[in-house]
Amino acid sequence: MIPNSLEVSRLAYAYPDGTQALFGVDLTIGRGERVALLGPNGAGKTTLVMHLNGILTPGHGTVTVAGTPVRRDTLKEIRQRVGLVFQDPDDQLFMPTVRDDVAFGPANAGVRGEELAAVVKNALDRVGMLDVADRPPHHLSFGQRRRVAVATVLAMEPEILVLDEPSSNLDPAARRELAEILRSLDVTVLMVTHDLPYALELCERAMILSDGVVAADGPTRELLGDAELLARHRLELPYGFAIPAAAERG
């Protein structure tokens, strides 16, 4: 049996200053699924994401990635399997050139020489950014930087791709291009967002995280169709947006 890509069970966490952000999160994501994690600001979305690759250590509960529990001694493996794409690509692209940045992860895992070059080339190709490989990240547009940020993570061949607000600050064209790239990838995706139309466009399934627990879990279409549920968790569809009758999915 193929293990689930991600299992989170009874996860609770309080920051060192005493603020508790998570109050027992349970969720399971099967291999190959694309899931949206929805929630208003302050719901604990980012805190949850930080647990998925062991940056934060749970106060209670467990996180398991493809059958491997997130523990101190498994961190190296976990960080290779969970690909985190941060909200601000400038935080993620810290190396002098795009090529160096994409190489950073695999190089830390011990990949060297021609194999490294091939991994980098492949990752950049998958997001259509091969032609900017030798440019410094600062010279790219915001949309290009976000795509390169996805490539830096893809280069590590992750089991699950976790994206924090992937559509923020993108113009409509860049937004569509990113959606096409995400649809073309054959990895499990967890997309943390409050951009509801984007969630509907890309993910069959959605969860609502509210006040530190998973408040709803089901097909995205159903969740977004329930106006009362959305309102209860401070979520809103954009003005004039109606859920299309039958969405085309690639």
Binding site: M50, N53, I55, K76, R79, Q80, V82, L84, F86, D91, Q92, F94, D100, A103, F104, G105, A107, N108, A109, R112, L116, T152, V153, M156
Partner: peptide, 15 residues
């Protein structure tokens, strides 16, 4: 945090 997420442990990999 972004560096840790991609396996940084104090040394820069030789690229």
């Amino acid at each position: 945090l972004a560096m840790l997420s991609r396996g940084y442990s104090g040394q820069m990999p030789i690229i």
